[in-house]
Design a protein around this nucleic acid. Structure first.
Lengths: 197, 197
DNA sequence: TTTTATAATTGACCGCGGTCATTTTTTGTT
DNA sequence: AACAAAAAATGACCGCGGTCAATTATAAAA
């Protein structure tokens, strides 16, 4: 028996991801077709599916990387000072998801995940987001800028729910004519986090 | 030019819906295949797509009818007396949606809709649900059982968000081992509706 | 009745995601 | 170098949702 070094395999995978990212850049997420990816990568169709469970698996990696980048930026900016700042901090994420329903559907499939497989970038980034939110809320609570009658975890999960709700409305009802998702989010956050009294 | 009486057409449509409902009964929503429907209805494939925009359009009618039935029952029971009763009132709906991801995905696509086409049963029932919720919340507010610092519409939409959140978690993370969606919903409602102070 | 315009239905066809038995390439062993 | 065994890649094939030009049924007009 032999142990398999996977150098060639890693190259193929990288090439697939690179090509897919380029296509997404040109045509958007919903314009990505498996046939195009394998054609431009110069590999057979089956190869793609030996690297990724399905088309969504490929998309998940791309989207996960993008979300990771967004989270990095959020983290750099530190804890928001109040609820309004919290909304502003979440805006880039909302804008990103709002650009294409495919992103929303995929993220929704992972939201609520509490444990991630090593390669599940999306699940991992979701957990990271909830953790970050929880941390922020703790700070806000300590500063008296958020209600203290609930644990920060519950508040964070609630916010997650509002994010999904606002985006759902965005993709269904209004779209262009309506306010931006971030604008729609704000009243929920204000009401949800408002210190009682 | 002639006006077309659509008797035959209505019969075909009814037959398709009847057959589809039977298949759903036997195989569940996710087991429904267009081929089976048209085969058992004794019509050609194209016919189905002249009656419904796509497979989801057919499912939407079936699901919409079921949701309508659930809403009828909810309405009969009158306004819940407090938040705990509200959770209980929403439980049947949660249980129904929790039974199959197809339902959740489809309802999510319509949640947030503010106006319905005449034949869009799902959208109509969604609006009805929000309206009913808003009414209930008004009563709860008047009785001092819910916070009065926010308009009932906002509270109702917030609840909608929590419903989606809880169901999303249900389909992703726990499923069988976890608590029921209704159980998971309760803390959110308690926190969201709690009168400040 | 014959004609004619339109409603309703048909089914061959397509696109595209996903599978899997087979073939090619790589790596470790003698 | 020759061989065996596992890894990696292949591409013909399938399932299934959805399309559309062609066909048939239906009802009003001549």
């Amino acid at each position: 028996m032999t142990r398999a070094p996977q150098k060639r395999r890693l190259e193929t995978r990288a090439k697939l991801l690179h090509v897919a990212a380029a296509i997404v850049q040109e045509q958007g997420y919903s314009g990505l077709r498996v046939e195009d990816v394998v054609a431009r990568a110069g590999v057979a169709k089956g190869t793609l599916f030996s690297h990724f469970k399905d088309k969504d698996g490929l998309l998940a990696v791309l989207i996960g990387e993008e979300v990771t980048r967004l989270l990095d930026r959020m983290e750099d900016e530190g804890t928001p000072a109040d609820v309004a700042a919290l909304t502003a901090r979440l805006a880039p994420h909302l804008d990103y998801v709002a650009q294409d329903r495919v992103i929303f559907d995929l993220l929704l499939r992972y939201s609520g995940t509490t444990a991630a497989e090593p390669d599940e970038v999306v699940a991992a980034s979701f957990i990271r987001q909830v953790t970050m939110l929880t941390g922020w809320l703790q700070t806000l609570q300590a500063a008296g800028k958020a209600r203290q009658d609930q644990p920060p975890e519950l508040l964070a999960e609630g916010i997650q729910g509002f994010l999904n709700h606002v985006l759902g409305v965005w993709f269904c009802a209004g779209h262009a004519n309506d306010a931006s998702p971030a604008q729609a989010l704000d009243p929920y956050l204000q009401a949800w986090l408002q210190p009682p009294g």
